[in-house]
Simulated scan of single mutants.
Amino acid sequence: MKAIFNSRIIETSDYLIKTSNRSFCYGDGLFETIVTGHGRINLIEKHIHRLKRGCKVLGMEFPNDLEMNSLETMIQKLQAINGFDGDIRTKVIVWRDSGGLYTPNLSSASFSLEVKASNSILFQGIDQVDVSSEIHTQYSPISFAKTTNALVYVLAGLEKKENGLDEVILTDPNGNLSETHISNLFWIKESKVYTPSLTTGCIEGIMRNTLIDLFHKNNIAVHEVEKTKEALRDASSVFSTNASGIKYLKRIGNWNYESPENFLTPIIKQLQQP
């Protein structure tokens, strides 16, 4: 399968990083996962904006070849070369060029681009969910972005697997709801929408921000809050969002929830615009 490394087409099987790679050694890098397709609104520009913000915080140069027009062209080229139809999941990784130890010597960056076919459903339910008892998010100047140091989410994924869950919810050190191990978190109570504040250390998801904008445009109140898991006790519906779409949670521990499909139908239709 073909991928792109610094604008050059390569075979994925040939792509070997050096042991001095700063993403490999120190997690000194960022990534974006972008899902595109005919039935989905184009969110590429928002992904680029978050990537640029992350590069600025890390003091790393943003690769010019990842600007909107060239990134779209590269995605389409890889889709055609690899023979993928339908929705496409693109992973973009940017890392600082080698040099230095904890303190880097350079600000220049390299990048890779890989695409895969995506069968993700835009709206679906999941059954078994619970709140992590051990793993916590932590706010920092870079916590809004997706970094290549994702050990918190790896550990949360292991806890989810060990407990036979479909998803696990993370809290911050103060016990405030933050996010799931792969998505942002929302809940509905009395026709109002709530989502954890970025101060809890949750990632500032592209789909999260898109939904907040759509809620506002549809005159639906959205509150970004610091609340413990008890806030979910009286919620009518709970759902999570990421690049793939929306998943509604049927059960968290012993608490059961209804599907938010009717409430979200106008929003989902707007997400499906070509």
Results as ranks from 00 to 15, higher is better:
Met1Gln: 13
Lys2Val: 03
Phe5Asp: 01
Ser7Pro: 04
Arg8Ala: 13
Ile9Gln: 01
Ile10Tyr: 09
Glu11Met: 05
Thr12Tyr: 02
Tyr15Gly: 09
Leu16Met: 10
Thr19Asp: 11
Arg22Glu: 00
Phe24Gln: 03
Asp28Cys: 06
Gly29Phe: 00
Leu30Thr: 09
Ile34Pro: 10
Val35His: 08
Val35Lys: 11
Gly37Glu: 06
His38Ala: 14
Gly39Met: 01
Arg40Val: 04
Arg40Gly: 08
His47Ile: 00
Ile48Ser: 04
Ile48Thr: 02
Arg50Val: 03
Arg50Ala: 08
Lys52Trp: 07
Lys56Leu: 14
Gly59Trp: 13
Gly59Cys: 13
Leu66Asn: 00
Glu72Met: 10
Ile81Ser: 09
Phe84Cys: 01
Gly86Asp: 09
Gly86Tyr: 03
Asp87Gly: 01
Ile88Ser: 11
Thr90Val: 08
Val92Asn: 03
Val92Thr: 00
Ile93Arg: 05
Ile93Gly: 00
Val94Phe: 04
Val94Ile: 15
Trp95Tyr: 14
Trp95Arg: 11
Arg96Asp: 02
Asp97Pro: 01
Ser98Gln: 11
Gly99Thr: 05
Gly100Ile: 05
Asn105Trp: 00
Phe123Gly: 08
Phe123Ile: 02
Ile126Pro: 01
Ile126Trp: 10
Ile126Thr: 06
Gln128Glu: 14
Asp130Ile: 06
Asp130Phe: 00
Val131Lys: 10
Ser133Tyr: 10
Glu134Val: 13
Gln138Pro: 11
Tyr139Cys: 11
Ser140Tyr: 06
Ile142Cys: 00
Ser143Met: 03
Thr147Tyr: 13
Tyr153Ser: 02
Ala156Phe: 05
Leu158Asp: 15
Leu158Met: 15
Glu159Gly: 03
Lys160His: 04
Lys161Pro: 02
Leu165Met: 06
Glu167Gln: 14
Leu170Gly: 07
Thr171Asn: 13
Asn174Arg: 06
Gly175Gln: 04
Leu177Lys: 03
Leu177Ile: 09
Leu177Pro: 08
Ser178Lys: 00
Ser178Pro: 01
His181Ala: 10
Leu185Pro: 12
Phe186His: 03
Phe186Leu: 12
Ile188Trp: 05
Ser191Trp: 01
Lys192Ser: 13
Val193Leu: 09
Val193Cys: 01
Val193Glu: 02
Thr199Tyr: 05
Ile203Ser: 08
Glu204His: 12
Gly205Leu: 04
Met207Cys: 03
Met207Gly: 00
Thr210Leu: 06
Thr210Tyr: 09
Asp213Leu: 09
Phe215Ala: 04
Phe215Trp: 12
Asn218Leu: 15
Asn219Phe: 08
Val222Lys: 08
His223Ala: 05
Glu224Arg: 10
Glu224Gln: 12
Val225Lys: 10
Glu226Lys: 15
Lys227Arg: 11
Glu230His: 09
Ala231Tyr: 05
Leu232Lys: 04
Leu232Met: 06
Arg233Trp: 13
Ala235Pro: 02
Ala235Lys: 10
Ser236Phe: 02
Ser236Asn: 11
Val238Lys: 09
Phe239Asp: 07
Thr241Cys: 08
Ile246Phe: 05
Tyr248Trp: 15
Arg251Ser: 13
Ile252Ser: 04
Asn254Ile: 14
Asn256Leu: 11
Glu258Asn: 03
Pro260Lys: 07
Thr265Lys: 13
Thr265Ala: 07
Thr265Arg: 12
Pro266Arg: 13
Lys269Leu: 12
Pro274Arg: 12
